[in-house]
Every structure is written in structure tokens, then in C-alpha cells.
Simulated assay, not measured.
Amino acid sequence: MADTLTPAQRSKRMSLIRGKNTGPELAVRKLVYAAGYRYRLHSIKLPGRPDLVFHGRRKVIFVHGCFWHRHEGCRLARLPKSRLEFWGEKLEGNKRRDMRNQEALVEIGWSVLVVWECELADEKALIERIRAFLG
């Protein structure tokens, strides 16, 4: 069925995918807030518009979906079986953009932590990792 869609229909479907306030992002925000940390969201002044911004600490957290951001070695990062050329190019472009944004943040003196969607399975380990980063 997906192969019979017109380019306009495909574009419409892609436009429905959210970039902010995703399920994994909301789960991380809830964990961080419960741990007593306060943050800003999606600062347009910083490269890549990080998901959580801790201005006083000069630290940011990106919450990445394993599929969309190509989490190496993760079972959630499998490529679709159809339209391999499109998806390969699209997802590798996302990965390159992420690296550029992270490098730009480090260059201007910010520390960066990437939290992967699959890490939410072990919330205890995740919050310890976040505490160590923000410490």
C-alpha cells in the first residue's frame, strides 16, 4: 500500500511526524524534573535546538529516536524493506546533521548528552547517567 502513494501523499505522511514533544522526550523530561533539575526546552539560539537546555551548567540533552537518528547496533534502528535508497539517504542525512550540531555546540563551550529511545527501558540506569552528566 505504501508503495502506491503519490509523492504528495508521502510528503503529507512525513509531515505528521513530530520533532518536538515526542513520547521518549516527554519520558526523559519527567525523569529529569522528578530528579530536581530544571531546564528550558528547544532553545532556538543553540545549534540543533536541543531538547533540554541547562543554561547555568552549559549542558544540553538531545533525546533521539533510535530509528530516525540511526542508533548503532540497536534493533530499533533497522532500515525499512522498501524504498531503501530514499530511507538510507534520509536517515544518514539525519545522522550527519546531528553530528554537525553536536560539534558546533562543543565548539561554543557546551557539553552534550544524547539519550537514546531504547535507554528508556532501564530508567534507573538512565537517571544515573543523566545525574553524572549534570553533576
Results as ranks from 00 to 15, higher is better:
Ala77Val: 02
Leu120Cys: 04
Arg78Gln: 14
Ala8Pro: 15
Arg96Cys: 02
Glu85Ile: 07
Leu79Ala: 15
Cys118Met: 05
Leu41Phe: 01
Arg100His: 07
Met1Phe: 08
Phe86Cys: 10
Ala125Met: 03
Ala132Asn: 09
Ser82Met: 05
Arg131Lys: 15
Pro24Ile: 03
Leu16Arg: 12
Leu91His: 04
Asn21Ser: 09
Glu128Trp: 04
Thr4Gln: 12
Thr6Gly: 15
Leu52Asp: 11
Lys59His: 04
Glu123Cys: 09
Arg97Met: 06
Ala121Arg: 08
Gly73Phe: 00
Glu117Phe: 03
Ser111Cys: 09
Arg18Gln: 03
Val63Met: 07
Ala2Val: 14
Ala121Pro: 01
Lys90Phe: 03
Val53Ser: 11
Phe54Cys: 11
Asp3Gly: 12
Glu117Ser: 06
Arg10Leu: 13
Asp98Thr: 07
Thr6Glu: 15
Arg70Ile: 14
Arg70Glu: 10
Arg131Ile: 15
Asp3Val: 09
Leu26Asp: 07
Gly19Pro: 02
Lys12Phe: 14
Leu76Pro: 08
Gly65Ile: 05
Ala2Ile: 15
Val115Ser: 03
Phe62Gln: 07
Glu123Leu: 11
Ile130Pro: 09
Glu25Gln: 06
Met99Glu: 15
Leu5Glu: 07
Leu26Tyr: 02
Ile61Arg: 03
Arg10Val: 14
Ala35Ile: 13
Arg40Val: 05
Lys20Leu: 03
Tyr37Arg: 15
Tyr33Thr: 13
Asn101Glu: 14
Ala77Tyr: 01
Glu117Gly: 03
Pro47Asn: 05
Arg13Asn: 14
Ala27Gly: 03
Ile108Thr: 04
Met99Asn: 08
Leu76Ser: 11
Val32Gly: 12
Glu123Gln: 14
Gly36Cys: 10
Trp87Gly: 07
Ser11Ile: 09
Gly73Asp: 02
Val63Pro: 06
Lys59Arg: 13
Ile108Trp: 00
His55Ala: 13
Arg70Ala: 12
Glu128Phe: 01
Val115Phe: 01
Val63Tyr: 02
Val112Leu: 06
Leu120Ala: 02
Arg129Ala: 13
Val60Trp: 04
Cys74Tyr: 01
His42Tyr: 11
Arg29Pro: 07
Lys124Cys: 02
Leu126Lys: 06
Ile127Met: 13
Gly23Arg: 14
Arg100Trp: 05
Ser15Gln: 06
Lys81Val: 11
Gly48Ile: 04
Arg83Thr: 01
Leu76Gln: 10
Val32His: 08
Ser111Ala: 13
Glu89Tyr: 00
Leu52Thr: 12
Asp98Leu: 03
Asp3Lys: 12
Val60Pro: 01
Gly73His: 00
Gly109Tyr: 02
Lys124His: 04
Glu92Asp: 06
Trp87Leu: 07
Gly36Tyr: 06
Asp122His: 00
His42Gln: 10
Lys95Gly: 03
Val115Pro: 03
Met14Thr: 09
Lys20Ser: 10
Lys20His: 09
Ala8Glu: 15
Ala2Thr: 11
Glu128His: 09
Gly65Ser: 04
Leu46Phe: 09
Pro47Cys: 11
Pro50Gln: 04
Leu126Phe: 02
